[in-house]
């Protein structure tokens, strides 16, 4: 079995994995990092979105072996010593979540969006989040939260 080294939320892990092991199952079942959930099997819902080497990816559609040598940030690695990431705060403040199942992926995708576009318009936010489905919020408050999160991220680089 291939041996891989992956840093997840700041901790380095060395593990032997079956080639077919999905990154999300590596995170959840192997490392116990269950903050990242799985919502579909066709790359549509985005619930499993994480940052891999700084870019958003759907961890259900990446093999763990493909992440070898990589740096993964999940929703569990965003808060800096108890201090929430601005995007996490914005989601809370704007009521951008209800059941919260899409939220880890939505927050990660939003951070990725703002990393590439520090002041996105409503349309850019809606299009930028097209790969993350939410069934509860109707997205209105998510859009608000991303605008607010972007503002906070600009203010606190």
């Amino acid at each position: 079995m291939p041996r891989i080294t992956v840093t997840v939320d700041g901790t380095k892990y060395e593990e032997e994995v079956e080639p077919r092991l999905l990154l999300v199952h590596f995170l959840r079942d192997r490392l116990g990092r269950t903050g990242t959930p799985v919502g579909c099997d066709t790359t549509n819902c985005g619930a499993c979105t994480v940052l891999l080497d700084g870019l958003s990816v759907k961890s259900c559609s990446v093999l763990a072996v493909q992440a070898d040598g990589g740096d993964v940030v999940t929703v569990q690695g965003l808060a800096d010593g108890g201090e929430l990431h601005p995007m996490q705060r914005a989601f809370h403040e704007e009521h951008a979540l209800q059941c919260g199942y899409c939220t880890p992926g939505m927050i990660i995708a939003s951070i990725d969006l703002v990393n590439g576009n520090p002041d996105p318009t409503e349309t850019e936010i809606r299009e930028g989040l097209e790969g993350n489905l939410c069934r509860c919020t109707g997205y209105c408050n998510i859009v608000r939260a991303v605008r607010r999160g972007a503002e906070l991220m600009r203010a606190e680089p």
Partner: peptide, 12 residues
Amino acid sequence: EDARLITGRTQW
């Protein structure tokens, strides 16, 4: 409810 949901400290 949000505190655990936005940080991934959930229990699905």
